[in-house]
Design a protein around this nucleic acid. Structure first.
Lengths: 149, 149
DNA sequence: CTGCATCCTCAAGTGCACTTGAGGTCAAGG
DNA sequence: CCTTGACCTCAAGTGCACTTGAGGATGCAG
């Protein structure tokens, strides 16, 4: 079985055929066509699709994923350098998001722990007032340093 | 200054007036009106808005946030029990997402570490093939147990 | 050769979270 | 008096990631 139909790719990757066509439209994957105009995908497309799904879970938008894919070889197997660069940048992204979630979780604990319970006096709850000097918005949860306690 | 205009709330919370009107439409916040039909928000709305922003960062959709808010008192200050319940459920959510991100990060490391570098033979890359028995889709990254190595 | 699954294209629809724009009101300052 | 700015409503538009549907061709099984 040299190449795969769109249905086979869908089944193997767990991604709907409509989504596959959509990705193709966006240039994230490519196919050849049979005489009848049906798509035929190289087996390696499974790899690319898995890559797309992975990247989405990491939090990348399709546009960014497209850029990454454009830098990866579609013909040859990715080289150590390709993968290492990607891995570094994704890891940074993942670490950032984890750090944010931990900040948020910390906020939760703190508001239980601090006893204020009001969501009102607590710095977690009204960043707009306490952090006014930092500009609008809930800054603490978004990565800014806290003001001196 | 008893109550706040929509502009003041926007400034203090860092959320656009259009978004505030949108939240009000959705029933997430409420206002009274002046004779001229202008919104006047109680100061506590800042708390609710901060709550909304927080919850969004945690990953909740507006609908879910609305449900949580409906369970919280809009008049009185939240009680320990209110906050504890919320904190528990959000913490679980955060922990889950962190766990997923760590799985993803682990996948990254593994694919560097395992030396396969192909994204092809590696179980990280082709879950559809290796995990076929688990149903379609990239299951490992989504929390399923791995099959016996 | 008939029927059904699978494939095709292209346009439109969906859900989410908003934003933008048109058209209008109202209070205060110059 | 008139402009400016903050506010109002309601409808429509935006970006993302797809899905759905109409209308039609293809491919294989019996």
């Amino acid at each position: 079985m040299r190449s795969l139909t769109i249905g086979e790719v869908a089944e193997r990757s767990g991604v709907a055929t409509s989504a596959l066509r959509f990705y193709e439209d966006r240039g994230l994957i490519a196919s050849e066509r049979t005489a009848a105009g049906h798509r035929r995908y190289p087996r390696a497309v499974i790899r690319r699709v898995a890559f797309i799904v992975f990247a989405q879970r990491v939090g990348l938008a399709l546009g960014e994923i497209g850029e990454e894919l454009a830098r990866l070889p579609s013909d040859r197997v990715p080289e150590r350098a390709d993968w290492a660069r990607l891995s570094r940048s994704w890891r940074a992204r993942i670490d950032e998001r984890i750090a944010e979630l931990e900040r948020l979780r910390g906020g939760l604990t703190e508001c239980i722990g601090c006893g204020c319970l009001s969501l009102d006096r607590c710095r977690l709850a009204n960043p707009g007032d306490r952090a006014a000097g930092l500009g609008p918005g809930p800054r603490y949860w978004m990565g800014d340093a806290r003001p001196p306690a």
